[in-house]
């Protein structure tokens, strides 16, 4: 039986045109053997939750460089719960001040990444999170 592929949604919520980081991450995850669904720019939390539902992803990765993370991330998490996808792992990257990270983790984010992130670290973290759940 073929192994279950890890499916990841990479989304850019809000009015944020910085898409290089999202694309770098998307490509790195693909090169690590994952199936990556990229949604493009300017997604509302509702759209992201819907896409996560339809694509049945294991992970939602949000890339935010606009400074609106404290508003957007909890909204995405709320919408994911509403559609029944509250169990996905959420990873966030972009320009996130240190001081905001504890709040995001508290809200349900698994991990937060900043500029210069080594993409191998992201791949490892995703695989580790999923392996951990499978064991549980």
């Amino acid at each position: 039986m073929p192994e279950k592929k890890i499916r990841v949604l990479i989304a850019k919520p809000g009015l944020d045109g910085h898409d290089r980081g999202a694309k770098v991450i998307a490509r790195a995850l693909r090169d690590d053997g994952m199936e990556v669904i990229y949604t493009g720019l300017r997604q509302t939390p509702q759209m992201i939750a819907e896409a996560a539902l339809q694509e049945d992803v294991d992970v939602v990765g949000l890339s935010i460089l606009s400074g609106a993370h404290n508003v957007l991330v909890p909204q995405v998490i709320q919408k994911l719960r509403e559609v029944g996808k509250g169990d996905v792992f959420i990873f966030v990257g972009g320009i996130i001040p240190q001081a905001d990270i504890p709040g995001l983790l508290q809200a349900g984010v698994k991990k937060v990444y900043g500029p210069g992130t080594d993409t191998r670290e992201v791949c490892q973290d995703i695989r580790a999170a999923i392996a951990e759940r499978q064991q549980a």
Partner: peptide, 13 residues
């Protein structure tokens, strides 16, 4: 890699 980049949704906003 066995991975894939599925980008068609970008065109279906």
């Amino acid at each position: 890699s066995g991975g894939a980049l599925l980008g068609d949704r970008v065109r279906m906003p």
